[in-house]
């Protein structure tokens, strides 16, 4: 990098990028809200960023990126997202802490470490998607029980009893015992939990709507309909 950006300027650049993703135009007050700072600080930061040729900002108008700035902001944003993913999805840290720590890590870690972390996160994501590696599942099991999952057979599968799948994959008439509700789905999780979808509850798929979605499940003795989209968030053990 031929120019050095301070930690705070990096954050501003990323902040502007996040705002620009959400809104059509970037206003000063949106940046202030995103960064949780006062307007004058935003004005100062924008001045510096403009001097470095990353953004352009005329008085009283919206903020726009230069090509260089957009590139830089995207890089920063991707880096932040990967670190966040590592903490949140792989380690299972809470959203709040993950956000906070990701912020620290991305500024303090050496570039090469960050690079490897990125690669590692990608690898874990791919392997869990393809179902080839059981690392993520095994790690979750380890976190929950403190024990290393017993290997059942040579293929390296985990014991049958811990075989988990989303409720959306059960077929009509099949039952499952709820293991957990996925994180990161906002208020939906609480809604499902308060309606009785707590771990240990047994559910059965009673019906599928004529068009294939939503589904009707029997839970705590009543019928509840969910879209597959929602059912996917409920992890069950087939029984």
């Amino acid at each position: 990098m031929e120019y050095a950006l301070s930690e705070s300027l990096e954050d501003y650049l990323m902040g502007i990028f996040i705002v620009s993703k959400q809104n059509k135009v970037v206003r000063l007050k949106d940046i202030a809200k995103e960064r949780q700072v006062k307007l004058p600080s935003v004005v100062n930061a924008l001045k510096e960023l403009a001097e470095k040729g990353l953004i352009s900002h005329e008085r009283y108008s919206y903020v726009t990126f230069t090509d260089k700035g957009l590139n830089e902001a995207k890089k920063l944003y991707d880096r932040h997202k990967t670190v966040f993913k590592f903490l949140y999805e792989i380690l299972g840290v809470t959203e709040f802490i993950a956000e906070k720590d990701a912020h620290r890590m991305e500024h303090d870690l050496t570039a090469s470490t960050l690079d490897l972390l990125t690669k590692f996160t990608e690898f874990m994501e791919m392997s869990s998607k393809r179902g080839e590696s059981r690392f993520p599942e095994q790690f979750k099991y380890f976190m929950e029980t403190g024990k290393f999952p017993e290997i059942k057979s040579k293929e390296g599968g985990i014991m049958e009893k811990t075989k988990e799948k989303p409720l959306s994959e059960l077929k009509r008439g099949e039952s499952g015992k709820i293991v957990r509700i996925k994180k990161g789905i906002g208020a939906l999780k609480g809604r499902l939990l308060t309606m009785g979808a707590v771990p240990g509850t047994v559910v059965r798929i009673k019906k599928v709507a004529p068009l294939g979605d939503p589904i009707d499940i029997l839970i705590l003795g009543y019928h509840l309909s969910l879209r597959k989209e929602e059912a996917e968030k409920i992890i069950v053990q087939e029984i």
Binding site: V93, I97, G146, L193, V198, P199
Partner: peptide
């Protein structure tokens, strides 16, 4: 509360929201 929550989550693998509602049930 956030701190306590994350301490329990990391330490015991608890998901607090789930755990609390589960206890009520």
């Amino acid at each position: 509360a956030m701190h306590e929550g994350s301490r329990l989550e990391v330490g015991f693998g608890y998901d607090l929201e789930t755990e609390i509602i589960e206890r009520r049930y």
